[in-house]
Design a protein around this nucleic acid. Structure first.
Lengths: 333, 333
DNA sequence: CTGTTAGCGCTTTCAC
DNA sequence: GTGAAAGCGCTAACAG
């Protein structure tokens, strides 16, 4: 390094001074720090990482950035990780499996010390993530978890959240409750669907298969299916949607058809999108504790990093919270 | 490297094969590729970067992730950069100057090849960014630009956008138009304020200083100031807000006070937040071309990277678009 | 307290 | 076609 040369001393001394190690002459240390400052010296993280075989960087793999859920979790992850002295390498795959595989490769090439991931809705093959495990790099899943990888994961109690949402509809007098469900490859979708089913069963409401529609989470499909539901000979009087964007789109369809919400159709969403309290009527929804999710994901990763590995990976399931607003007001017949 | 050892050949040969260089025996190449595949071999990007003094990574510094504007631009940046063979290191500073300085240091330590930045609203000292320039690392600003650094930047025509928004209010019959302006350290704020002023002047509407309030972009302040404005002896009949969150907050205050929008107070925002078309009444706003912003930011950076440096850094100003919705409907007296 | 040496994994001359 | 050697900037023993 140039600063060693400039002072005519060895680079190990400089290295020691810069790292604030003990056993170094105060005079030389000061001289070194001065020159370093003068030169705008920035230690080369790459060389450091290469030498230490440790990058102090955690990769985060998420399906999308333009949404409310993931950025919120991300901010929390970043904050916790920063506190623990780690940097974050964020990769966003735009819900594309191919991009996710690419991103995984990039993170691997950059030798991240650990990985926090929520995979795309297309992901069925997890080979690109298993490589990390094989190489001994700790992995944590959140929200969307992979069931055939034995790693810690943090999820939200989708089942319970859905159950409470539907129970709330029933208690407010709704009987024909439709459900727009996500792709059944996602455990999220399945759990919410189960919550829906069990609530109906518990209240002795017959399950009408016509009222359950599984789709790919794109808004154009929502439009089609909501219209389909409303055109049914016996249309539903309530809708439990997979997520808020879906619920909001449904609301728009209702608006354009003159269907009154909640009078003709009550609607409840999932994820507490920032728009949900603002629209008219304000949307009843199930909120996920985004910042807790981030916190626990980091905690579980750090546990592995510090060698506190348990034989059975710890998983945490966080409670969801039903937020009751106007779109599900009590029914008067 | 282990793959060289396993085949009993030199590592330079392996390196050549892996990089697909010419002049290599097809047999050995195949053997090498086979072993590489078998070993899940991933080239070490760190070692590569260290050797080449080039990381193929671009740092992106943004003030926040939980919003609509920045993620949108980010996705566009990421896409363009990916196409050009670059990775992205995203740092979010949460509108905190200190975090921004930290992040800049991290990016520097990671030897990014270039930097795309939109600074925090607190940033007044740009020393942490000038270091990049001094080290010969190309920098591009977007949206929030630094006026005392000579670098390319891409912005939106805030002045024109504001002008059109206010003109639209005037043409719809509003006369006492208030403006909630951002901190005047941000060129954005100043340009929007100027657009506002010029529109009033052009239509011979006297400027009432009481109707212009500059604040720090926090929502609690919005609440206070909107109430203040509405309590004025001569309250405004319209509001031009610095951004959509502000406008939406204003709308909430109106709702809670029984002030009808747009009847008693017309409102126009800025940035076309996803919630803005959904709220009641839907919000008139000025939209920024987020994906063009990202595209041009990357283009300007790539220009520098490929040595196409002009003596005068190119800057691009993108047009904003006024989206007319219900919150500014024509006034009937 | 400080210098020397080797090595992290890869690229890049320069030889053979 | 392939190998040997040096170097990117830093850390980590091991000597003094």
């Amino acid at each position: 390094m140039d600063i060693a040369r400039q002072l005519g001393i060895s680079k190990s001394t400089v290295s020691r001074a810069l790292r604030g190690q003990t056993d170094i002459h105060p005079g030389t240390r000061q001289a070194i720090l001065d020159v370093a400052h003068e030169l705008d010296y920035q230690p080369n993280q790459l060389a450091y990482s290469l030498a230490k075989s440790k990058t102090n960087t955690i990769g985060v793999l998420i399906p999308e950035l333009v949404s409310s859920f993931f950025p919120k979790v991300l901010v929390s992850i970043q904050q916790s990780l920063r506190q623990a002295g780690y940097n974050v390498l964020i990769c966003q795959s735009d819900e594309s499996y191919e991009t996710e595989v690419d991103n995984a490769r990039i993170l691997l090439a950059n030798r991240v010390d650990g990985l926090i991931v929520s995979h795309t809705k297309e992901t069925r093959n997890f080979e690109h993530l298993k490589i990390f495990q094989r190489k001994g790099i700790p992995v944590v899943f959140f929200n969307r978890v992979c069931e055939d990888m034995v790693v810690p994961n943090v999820t939200v109690d989708d089942y319970r959240g859905a159950f409470e949402a539907v129970e709330h509809l029933i208690q407010n007098g709704y009987q024909r409750i439709a459900h727009l469900s996500g792709p059944d490859t996602l455990p999220n979708s399945r759990n919410r669907l189960n919550g829906y089913r069990h609530a109906l069963r518990q209240y002795n409401i017959p399950l009408d298969p016509d009222l359950i529609i599984s789709y790919d989470l794109t808004l154009t499909k929502v439009n089609i299916y909501i219209n389909h539901l409303l055109n049914l000979p016996q249309p539903p009087d309530a809708l439990f949607a997979m997520n808020d964007p879906t619920a909001i789109e449904a609301l728009k369809v209702c608006r354009s058809r003159g269907v009154r919400v909640p009078h003709d159709l009550a609607i409840v969403g999932f994820s507490n999108d920032p728009a949900s309290p603002l629209i008219e009527p304000s949307l009843t929804t199930v909120a996920q504790p985004t910042s807790d999710i981030g916190y626990h994901a980091v905690r579980l990763l750090l546990n592995q990093l510090t060698g506190q590995v348990e034989s059975i990976p710890e998983s945490v399931i966080l409670p969801a919270e039903l937020l009751i607003r106007s779109s599900t007001a009590k029914r008067f017949n």
